[in-house]
Amino acid sequence: GIPATNLSRVAGLEKQLAIELKVKQGAENMIQTYSNGSTKDRKLLLTAQQMLQDSKTKIDIIRMQLRRALQ
């Protein structure tokens, strides 16, 4: 079985993952909103794209940590 310490770690990672998935969803929504907007929305679009990139990276890292914890 999986050690108890790993189980609480997994629960924490799953919570983090859920949050990051919401951030990713929000960033994707912002990108959709701003991509057909005016030029003043360009900065917001770039910010949203950066957020999305960061979020995807975090999600990958969390998933990797989850896999390790579940081994």
Score class of each variant (00 low, 15 high):
15 K>E: 06
65 Q>K: 09
40 K>P: 07
49 Q>Y: 15
56 K>D: 04
63 R>D: 02
11 A>T: 07
38 S>Q: 09
16 Q>T: 03
39 T>M: 09
32 Q>V: 10
27 A>S: 02
61 I>F: 12
27 A>H: 06
4 A>H: 08
58 K>P: 00
13 L>N: 00
67 R>M: 07
23 V>C: 09
50 Q>K: 12
43 K>I: 11
60 D>S: 14
35 S>N: 11
7 L>R: 14
69 A>G: 03
55 S>V: 13
57 T>A: 12
20 E>H: 07
42 R>P: 13
5 T>Y: 09
6 N>A: 08
38 S>R: 04
20 E>Q: 14
60 D>E: 13
26 G>W: 13
67 R>W: 08
29 N>W: 13
42 R>Y: 14
52 L>Q: 01
16 Q>I: 08
3 P>W: 03
52 L>C: 04
69 A>I: 14
41 D>A: 03
45 L>C: 05
48 A>K: 01
35 S>H: 09
10 V>A: 03
34 Y>E: 02
18 A>G: 04
56 K>N: 11
9 R>G: 06
44 L>G: 05
51 M>G: 01
31 I>R: 01
31 I>G: 01
35 S>P: 02
33 T>P: 01
36 N>E: 14
59 I>P: 00
7 L>K: 12
47 T>L: 14
52 L>V: 03
27 A>I: 15
44 L>I: 05
28 E>G: 01
26 G>R: 15
41 D>V: 03
71 Q>P: 03
6 N>S: 10
34 Y>R: 02
17 L>W: 02
4 A>M: 04
48 A>L: 12
37 G>H: 04
61 I>P: 00
53 Q>N: 05
21 L>D: 01
68 R>D: 11
3 P>Q: 06
16 Q>V: 04
29 N>Q: 14
71 Q>K: 07
7 L>F: 02
69 A>Q: 03
62 I>Y: 02
8 S>E: 14
9 R>K: 11
22 K>E: 07
55 S>M: 02
56 K>I: 15
47 T>I: 14
19 I>D: 11
53 Q>T: 08
27 A>T: 03
51 M>D: 03
4 A>L: 03
35 S>I: 13
58 K>F: 02
68 R>H: 10
33 T>A: 14
11 A>M: 07
34 Y>Q: 03
50 Q>E: 06
68 R>P: 01
68 R>Q: 12
65 Q>H: 06
39 T>S: 10
27 A>C: 13
36 N>L: 05
34 Y>P: 01
31 I>D: 00
39 T>A: 10
41 D>M: 03
34 Y>W: 04
50 Q>H: 05
14 E>T: 13
36 N>T: 12
15 K>T: 04
39 T>Q: 12
25 Q>D: 05
60 D>V: 12
51 M>A: 07
23 V>K: 13
67 R>H: 09
9 R>M: 11
32 Q>S: 11
15 K>D: 05
69 A>P: 02
59 I>F: 00
45 L>I: 03
6 N>P: 06
41 D>R: 03
16 Q>P: 00
69 A>D: 02
